[in-house]
Every structure is written in C-alpha cells, then in structure tokens.
Simulated scan of single mutants.
Amino acid sequence: MLDDGAPLFTQIAERLADQIADGALAEGERVPSTNELAAYHRINPATAAKGINVLTDDGLLEKRRGIGMFVAAGARERLLAERRKRFAERYVQPLVAEAHRLGFDADELVTLIREASHTEEGIRP
C-alpha cells in the first residue's frame, strides 16, 4: 500500500515507474486506469490521475484515445538512463570525492567496492 510520507500522487507515479523500470510493465502495455488505481489504493481518482499525468508529462506513458494509457515506446530506456544519472550524482560522485580526500586511488576504490559487493546478498561482482 501507499504510506511512505510522500504525496499520494507521487507514490502512484513512482510505483508505476518502478514497474516500467523492472519490466513488469512493458512498452505498449496498458497501465491500470485511474479508477482501477483509485480502487486498489483506496484513494481519490483525481489523485491517481495526477500520478498518471506525472508519467505522461515525462513521456513515459501515452494516452490512446478511448482505450486507456499505455507505456510509451522507449520509456524503460529513458527511465533507466535518468535513474543511472541520478545514482551517479547522489552516490558515485560523493563516494569518489570522499575516497579522494582519504587518499584512495581508483584501483583501491574499485577493490573496496568489489569486496563490499561480495558481502551483499544477491549482488555479484
């Protein structure tokens, strides 16, 4: 269910975007309607519509008149590219900057990352 403190429409948009990124919603596939989302999450249909509109404005969903909203062509690739960019900005760049301050060279940093990935369940080097 929805409850992480973010506005409900943002949570709807993020859940649908996650499904696109994961491949659970493929390009050309119909997404749940505003009323279906509202009923499932027990929210106002206008709130669900606002979440869908966020993804439409971002070019991830497209309306097909009379039949509903669908995942746009290239949506997954665009979404993953944006998420990779954000990941680099939020995590990699600060990590590299701090490693530099501590005197690590690139090879040492890569070794630390590989060692850490071995200890994390499900992550492979």
Rank of each mutant, 00 (worst) to 15 (best):
M1Y: 11
G5I: 08
A6C: 12
P7A: 13
P7Q: 07
F9K: 15
T10K: 15
A13W: 08
R15Q: 13
L16A: 01
L16W: 04
A17T: 12
A17S: 15
I20S: 09
A21F: 00
A21R: 12
G23Y: 08
G23T: 02
G23V: 06
G23Q: 00
L25F: 09
L25V: 09
A26W: 01
E27L: 12
E27Q: 13
E27A: 13
G28M: 12
V31S: 08
P32D: 11
S33W: 09
T34K: 10
T34P: 04
N35Y: 06
E36N: 01
Y40A: 14
Y40I: 10
Y40S: 12
Y40H: 11
Y40G: 05
H41Q: 11
R42L: 05
N44D: 15
N44H: 11
A48P: 10
A49E: 06
A49W: 00
K50M: 12
K50N: 13
K50W: 06
G51S: 12
I52Y: 04
I52V: 13
N53G: 06
V54Y: 06
T56H: 11
T56R: 14
D58H: 11
D58P: 00
R64N: 05
R65C: 00
G66M: 12
G66Y: 01
I67A: 12
I67T: 15
G68K: 03
G68M: 05
M69D: 15
G74E: 10
R78W: 06
L79W: 11
L80P: 11
L80W: 07
L80R: 14
A81Y: 10
K85P: 05
F87G: 03
F87H: 13
E89M: 10
R90D: 08
Q93T: 10
L95M: 14
L95G: 09
V96R: 14
A99R: 03
L102H: 07
G103N: 03
G103A: 03
D105C: 04
D107W: 02
D107V: 02
E108W: 03
T111W: 00
L112D: 06
I113R: 04
R114T: 01
R114M: 01
S117G: 01
T119C: 09
T119H: 08
E120M: 08
E120T: 05
